[in-house]
Design a protein around this nucleic acid. Structure first.
Lengths: 350, 350
DNA sequence: CAATGTTGCTCAACCGATAGAGCATCCTTG
DNA sequence: CAAGGATGCTCTATCGGTTGAGCAACATTG
């Protein structure tokens, strides 16, 4: 089958001309044992009763020689890598960007080395990436916005790796998510209120974006419908266009909707900033867009879009709170499945 | 495969109760040697003259047992980790997001495991992250948008790790960057042309954002000035506000500029989308903003901002070309310092 | 039939760091 | 001054995979 699929990088793997320093090199120069050097350099020297004098000598030599610990060897021996992995769908929006940045900072604050990889919302890539992370011995894996979190949890469990879910919940591991239903309900209500304030007739809104079968989109649709009910409106299913997140899909969905002979509703609930791009593009291309007249709401937050638009309502998920909850779970060692549902905030109306 | 850690008290994240499978486990079950198992599982079995029959038996058992290679151990022995690291300043814009996504995809296509970490434009964090990556034995490190690329290269060299620069050039390692000067010159010319087309009087533009001492900002200022010269305009230094990328800094800079008794120029060259946020916020807050009247240009590309604005010109750096050039260098093993300067593209005028 | 080659597999020595056990000294204390 | 303890350090096995060397068994050749 695959005899030789190796070294795609054209075998640039020449042996390094600079031999890496090891504890053995440092030990020789310090006239001490590798054990002593190891203890000094990993901080366990007090416990191991190494004298302050020797510790200082070793530290100085290590510094001078540019010694750098080989974490692979260290992790191998200690059966603990201090690596923490995270899977993220995309880097094309502020939400996941903020999650990635915050995750890294909080991991580092705990002396964990964060490894983040984006999986492009591709289920196969998600599994492959999870397996790769496990092979690299991550101590813990966070699946953020995964299409099938439970599948990932099962893979982790098989290798004894702890896993947690973020943004999208699973049934097999602790999950930290936003209150999508509540946020969507509030956003929908605000869009309707905008219509009222503008003296326009109330009518059911259009829902665009997301995947009907994913938890968050389902919850948002539920909130969307609840807000309609609260306003005494029906929310007919044909106004729900959840054909994916990509801008082109949103454009195509709206085009098909209109081509079906229907009138465009007076307001639109958009499921993400990336989808918003497609929605606005369609509206502009079809001369239906006017910054003052549009009644748009977006379940996602982008400060630049927010400041550039007049009538754009945005829901901001509370990334710091989500990460705080996530790391509280990680710190506590909790691994029972349970969902932590955090409230969202409103950000800007232009 | 039931609950989790045995010692509920104290150290929870301790030893996993699921003992990881090793080649020794598989070897025992297959009635073969660990050597044979290793060879089969890493693909070198043909070279090592293992029979097809044994290979298949081992593969099946490994699959059934859920074996997963310990990359730490593997990397330790082979002195090649197949890890490739990248430092990135921020995840708060599409440019670095696209770089991160593309980098991951191209690394994976080469059987390298990408490790990306964001350093928040913090020089200290950059060095710390570089050192951490080296400790984790990356085979190669890409410094993207680093504040001091040469410092990072020197650290890498001391450990025999290959390094490359992206987005911001260094003098000690190969660098792939955008033609910032040319892009800025074209963008500036386009803004001026917009003024002309709108029948407004030509006047020097304002330059906002970036750090005067970083290469890219310096180049962009040069291009900005060249375009002014081309149009027969002076570009007085007091119109150049390079006080950082953050939105608040841009707002503050403009506020100070105006407070100094000067009139706001008829058009603005903005150095990044993140800065644009601050610029627009100030313009709106001061009633100076009108989507149709504003003459804004941004050296950065954000499709949502682009589609939301009427008169916003954006320069799009050619991320795919940059990554292609980067990996061409990586694949070729090139490590001599040289700068590859790629043209930018225009994207959208609203 | 001996010499040589090929096939299929195993042995043992690593890679670098770490932890348990052990071993001299030196210091107390009765 | 011997027993007991503290101090300061080293020895050695080990984590899991990989690799050069080596060894039977069988096939081929002159």
């Amino acid at each position: 089958m695959n005899g030789n699929s190796r070294d795609a990088a054209g075998n640039t793997a020449r042996r390094p001309n600079v031999r890496r320093k090891t504890i053995y090199d440092v030990a020789r120069l310090a006239g001490a044992s590798p054990t002593a050097v190891s203890a000094v350099l990993n901080g366990s020297w007090r416990k191991r009763r190494i004298s302050e004098a020797l510790a200082e000598r070793i530290l100085k030599i290590a510094e001078d020689e540019g010694y750098s610990r080989n974490m692979q060897a260290s992790a191998l021996r200690r059966e603990r890598s201090h690596l923490i992995g995270m899977l993220v769908p995309k880097y094309d929006n502020r939400y996941f960007g903020a999650i990635a940045e915050g995750f890294e900072a909080m991991a580092r604050a705990r002396d964990l080395f964060p490894i983040i990889t984006c999986t492009l919302r591709d289920p196969r890539l998600e599994l492959e990436a999870a397996r790769a992370m496990i092979a690299h011995q991550v101590d813990c894996l966070v699946a953020c916005g995964a299409t099938d979190p439970d599948r990932i949890t099962r893979i982790c469990q098989a290798s004894g790796v702890r896993s947690l879910n973020l943004d999208l919940p699973g049934k097999l591991a602790p999950s930290v998510i936003s209150d999508n239903r509540g946020g969507a309900q509030a956003l929908t209500a605000a869009i309707l209120q905008g219509l009222r304030a503008a003296g326009k007739p109330l009518a059911p809104l259009l829902f665009v974006g997301g995947r009907a079968h994913d938890h968050n989109t389902a919850e948002r649709i539920a909130g969307f419908r609840a807000a309609h009910a609260d306003a005494g409106l029906a929310a007919p299913p044909e106004l729900t266009l959840a054909a994916g997140y990509a801008p082109e899909k949103a454009e195509a969905a709206i085009a098909a909707f209109v081509a079906g002979g229907r009138n465009l509703p007076p307001g639109v609930f958009v499921n993400s900033t990336i989808t918003l791009e497609g929605v606005v593009r369609w509206l502009k291309a079809n001369d239906a867009y006017d910054t003052r007249a549009a009644h748009l709401g977006c379940f996602d937050w982008d400060p630049l879009a927010s400041v550039l638009s007049e009538n754009l309502l945005m829901v901001r998920q509370d990334v710091p709170a989500m990460l705080a909850a996530l790391f509280a779970l990680i710190d506590s060692g909790e691994s029972r499945a349970a969902i932590i549902d955090l409230p969202t905030r409103f950000a800007g109306g232009g």
